[in-house]
Every structure is written in C-alpha cells, then in structure tokens.
C-alpha cells in the first residue's frame, strides 16, 4: 500500500473529512505504518497517550478495567480511529486496545495529529463532536 492508498483510507475517517488531500498525504507520510499480531496490545489503560492509530486493516477490541478484570466494551475495524481521546484531552489512556486479528494501522504521533487538526476549523468542530460522543458513551 503506498501513500496515495493511505490517503484514500484517511479520507473515510470522519475526523479528517474536512482536511484537504495534500494535508492528508503529509499526515500519512509523517506517520508510521505499524503491524500487530493477534492479541498484541496497541496501548494499555493508564499509559501516557503519545499517538493515535487509524486502523487500516483487521479489527481491534477496546477493553476497560472493571471490577472483574478487563471488560470488552467495543470493537473497531477499518478506517476507525483509536487512542485519539488521550491525545486531545492530554490524559492517560482510558482503555486498553488489543488487536483481535492481525492488524495494520497508521500510527500518528501526538504532535502531527494536533498540528493537522488545528489547521482546519471544520475538523475542530468534528473533533468536539467526537470527544463529546465518546464522553457520553463512557458515562
């Protein structure tokens, strides 16, 4: 998969829908393509948030620590973003994300993520919507 394909994928992410293609390509270039084996953790609840992930292929599961161990609260597949809340809010990871199949993802570092979003007002609105939704979802 080359940069241009990744850009096509990123366009389908609602959070990035307002960003022009050139910026998305730059974002793709500045990000790392990462792979995870089945069962491998992308990040762990309580860790510091340093990057967000766009799932390119495969499925990831989201777990939250509960009284009876980790509870699976959601799954995410192609073109979904995980790990963005910790970056946007500057908090620790509020959930653990694990690959439930072999997963390929784009790892976008915190700096790059924020820089791209800040250039586009529409994205900011979208960001607020996403954050609000997640917060509503988690309470």
């Amino acid at each position: 998969m080359i940069l241009n394909d990744e850009v096509q994928m990123l366009r389908r992410v609602p959070l990035f829908s307002g960003i022009d293609a050139a910026k998305l390509k730059l974002l793709a270039f500045a990000s790392n393509r990462v792979c995870y084996r089945e069962g491998q953790e992308l990040f762990h609840q309580g860790d510091e948030g340093d990057a967000a992930y766009v799932v390119l292929s495969g499925v990831v599961d989201v777990y939250k620590a509960g009284p009876s161990g980790d509870e699976k609260i959601a799954s995410a597949g192609c073109c979904s973003v995980v790990g963005e809340i910790a970056i946007l809010c500057g908090t620790a990871r509020n959930a653990t994300v694990k690959a439930s199949t072999a997963v390929e993802a784009l790892r976008i570092s915190k700096d790059c993520f924020l820089k791209v979003l800040s250039t586009c007002p529409r994205s900011m609105a979208e960001t607020m919507r996403v954050v609000g939704q997640r917060l509503a979802h988690s309470h």
Partner: peptide
C-alpha cells in the same frame, strides 16, 4: 517530486520535517 509536493508550503519549523 513527491517530497516537494508534500513539503513546499510548510513553514520550515513544522514538526513534519522531523520525518
């Protein structure tokens, strides 16, 4: 060509240059 296209409009202190 690809690089120039990606980076030509970026201010020189942009964090993307790290990549």
């Amino acid at each position: 060509e690809s690089t120039v296209e990606l980076f030509k409009d970026l201010p020189p202190d942009h964090p993307f240059f790290e990549q």
